[in-house]
Amino acid sequence: MSIEVEVVSKIYGNQMALNKVSFKIDKPEIVGFLGPNGAGKSTMMKILTTYIHANEGQIKVNGFDVTDNTKDVQKSVGYLPEHNPLYLDQYIKEYLAFNASIYGVSKQRINEVIELTGLTPESHKKIGQLSKGYRQRVGLANALLHDPEVLILDEPTTGLDPNQLVDIRNLIKSIGKTKTVFLSTHIMQEVEAMCDRVIIINKGEIVADKKLKDLRNEKEQIVIVEFDYRVEDAFLLKLPKVEKVVNTYDFVYEIKFKTSEDMRSYVFDFAHDNQLKILQLNQKNTSLEGLFRELTT
């Protein structure tokens, strides 16, 4: 396993930032780490990179314990923090050469990561002259300098325009063919476009861990229906393939079906046969965004 997290907790004063979090990530795999602001995403990433330590639990990266084998973990991890720290007065090659000397890698590697991240046309410039998209590329180039097995990227596409998004997305997907990529983002479309798997955290706890292909192929749906008066749940449970009925408010019901077949026609026929009037009839969003909203609100 590239990343192993077992019952990890982190407390800041009286606040529980992470509460017994556990998950494992294999190689190669691109995993999206989602959650609302303050859910614990950045805290988890800082612990994985040895920047801070957990209060309890165990974490291994590439087989190295983040507490006992700090240097080995740092050598095997490439990290792009949310606020990409760059020396704006340095030239791109100058900045990468400075970091290469810290990692002890050859100057040839500098040219390799510049080409890999598409920085060649801008490589003669100072970092302060670059657009947001190219600064992100510099951060990625720096994270890749020592050819790490694991890349940890905190909000790598924030603030990019559509063209820059496509470029960075394709770059991350390319890197993810041979390495483990663990990235956080608020952009659901980016997760669906890049990732193999999604882990959702809310209030310091993991609330979902799913393969994207499984999420797309789940044979279930939720139909929202509003009648003109209250109906007993047991009455609606007579519908075919029903798993659950919830009266959300007034005369509105969420009916969960265990099938990929569109069940709205069955609900309509059921209402007609039982002399019920339907005021609204919709399918609830079962996409990643729908799952995220359902689990974090």
Score class of each variant (00 low, 15 high):
residue 129 Q to H: 00
residue 260 S to W: 11
residue 162 P to N: 02
residue 55 N to K: 02
residue 239 L to F: 07
residue 38 G to A: 03
residue 162 P to S: 07
residue 282 N to S: 15
residue 277 K to L: 10
residue 15 Q to C: 03
residue 277 K to I: 05
residue 173 K to W: 04
residue 174 S to W: 05
residue 200 I to A: 04
residue 189 Q to P: 02
residue 179 K to M: 14
residue 250 D to G: 15
residue 204 G to Q: 01
residue 278 I to V: 09
residue 253 Y to K: 07
residue 216 R to L: 07
residue 95 Y to F: 12
residue 147 D to G: 13
residue 18 L to A: 13
residue 287 S to L: 10
residue 106 S to H: 08
residue 22 S to P: 05
residue 96 L to E: 02
residue 131 S to Q: 14
residue 167 D to H: 08
residue 196 D to N: 15
residue 116 L to I: 14
residue 232 E to T: 15
residue 236 L to D: 01
residue 212 L to R: 03
residue 203 K to R: 12
residue 62 N to P: 07
residue 251 F to K: 09
residue 71 K to V: 13
residue 145 L to P: 00
residue 201 I to R: 04
residue 248 T to S: 13
residue 151 L to D: 06
residue 244 K to N: 15
residue 183 L to A: 06
residue 55 N to S: 02
residue 44 M to R: 06
residue 49 T to Q: 05
residue 7 V to D: 11
residue 284 K to L: 05
residue 170 N to S: 10
residue 19 N to F: 08
residue 74 Q to D: 13
residue 246 V to A: 12
residue 5 V to D: 03
residue 205 E to V: 12
residue 212 L to H: 02
residue 212 L to C: 11
residue 33 F to L: 14
residue 270 F to I: 04
residue 267 V to F: 10
residue 148 P to K: 06
residue 174 S to L: 06
residue 207 V to L: 14
residue 74 Q to V: 11
residue 128 G to Q: 00
residue 283 Q to P: 06
residue 127 I to T: 00
residue 287 S to C: 12
residue 55 N to A: 01
residue 191 V to D: 00
residue 231 V to H: 01
residue 174 S to E: 06
residue 130 L to M: 12
residue 67 T to K: 08
residue 30 I to S: 02
residue 70 T to C: 07
residue 36 P to M: 08
residue 247 N to D: 10
residue 25 I to W: 02
residue 75 K to V: 08
residue 60 K to A: 03
residue 97 A to R: 05
residue 55 N to W: 02
residue 135 R to S: 06
residue 119 L to W: 09
residue 165 L to E: 00
residue 19 N to I: 10
residue 95 Y to D: 02
residue 174 S to C: 05
residue 112 E to F: 04
residue 234 A to T: 15
residue 77 V to M: 09
residue 64 F to Y: 14
residue 104 G to H: 09
residue 91 Y to I: 07
residue 213 K to W: 14
residue 87 Y to P: 08
residue 167 D to S: 11
residue 175 I to K: 01
residue 12 Y to R: 02
residue 279 L to W: 08
residue 61 V to Q: 02
residue 102 I to T: 14
residue 204 G to V: 07
residue 79 Y to I: 11
residue 235 F to K: 12
residue 231 V to F: 14
residue 183 L to K: 00
residue 221 Q to N: 12
residue 216 R to T: 09
residue 146 H to Q: 11
residue 292 F to C: 10
residue 41 K to Q: 11
residue 281 L to T: 14
